[in-house]
């Protein structure tokens, strides 16, 4: 009887998505870092601080900084290609709203798929939606880096502090585990 009830989701006919993680780097020394800012308040500052710390502490170099044209959507193909062409690793964020946290996870998976390891930074208030989106894009176990909510109201000093707290995790996310 119950098998006569139609499924209202359309999911039964959806093709499965498979995510392909990128190879991790042996080290960040000399590595080219791309920064993808999603336009949320303080995102650009946090990414810039992280870029500076990766340079100072790990010897990486920031080669490109781009801003997403639409905060709610995953990165567009031309921007993805432009960044991937000159980056060995990418940092993106900050997921700090309903749609942008989800799309940040999709961005990370998209960069991994083209061979660029990605560190995705999301406010911890949006962890569930970011993880759900990672599942939609084929990798429900995609590792997201969380920072405490809120981010938008922090001042310059507090943003720098957040970057300091995050930088080792960012490096760990894109590099091979130390032997």
């Amino acid at each position: 009887m119950l098998d006569r009830i139609l499924d209202p989701t359309g999911l039964s006919v959806r093709p499965a998505n498979v995510a392909v993680p990128a190879r991790r780097l042996p080290s960040l020394a000399g590595a080219r870092v791309g920064l993808l800012n999603n336009t949320k308040r303080n995102a650009a500052q946090l990414l810039t601080e992280l870029g500076d710390l990766l340079r100072d502490r790990y010897g990486a170099v920031v080669t490109i900084q781009r801003t997403k044209p639409h905060v709610a959507f995953p990165v567009d193909e031309p921007t993805l290609k432009e960044i991937a062409a000159v980056s060995d690793v990418v940092i993106t964020g900050v997921g700090d709203c309903g749609s942008c946290s989800a799309s940040a996870a999709a961005d990370g998976i998209a960069f991994e798929r083209v061979g660029v390891p990605a560190a995705v930074i999301v406010s911890d208030a949006f962890e569930v939606t970011a993880r759900a989106m990672a599942g939609v894009h084929g990798d429900e176990n995609f590792e997201i880096l969380l920072t405490p909510h809120p981010v938008a109201v922090l001042n310059e000093e507090q943003i720098a502090e957040r970057a300091t707290q995050l930088v080792a995790d960012v490096a760990g996310r894109v590099c091979e585990p130390a032997r």
Partner: peptide, 11 residues
């Protein structure tokens, strides 16, 4: 249909 469910993709 769009899969926007509260507490998950609906925030």
């Amino acid at each position: 249909g769009l899969g926007v469910v509260p507490h998950v993709l609906e925030q």
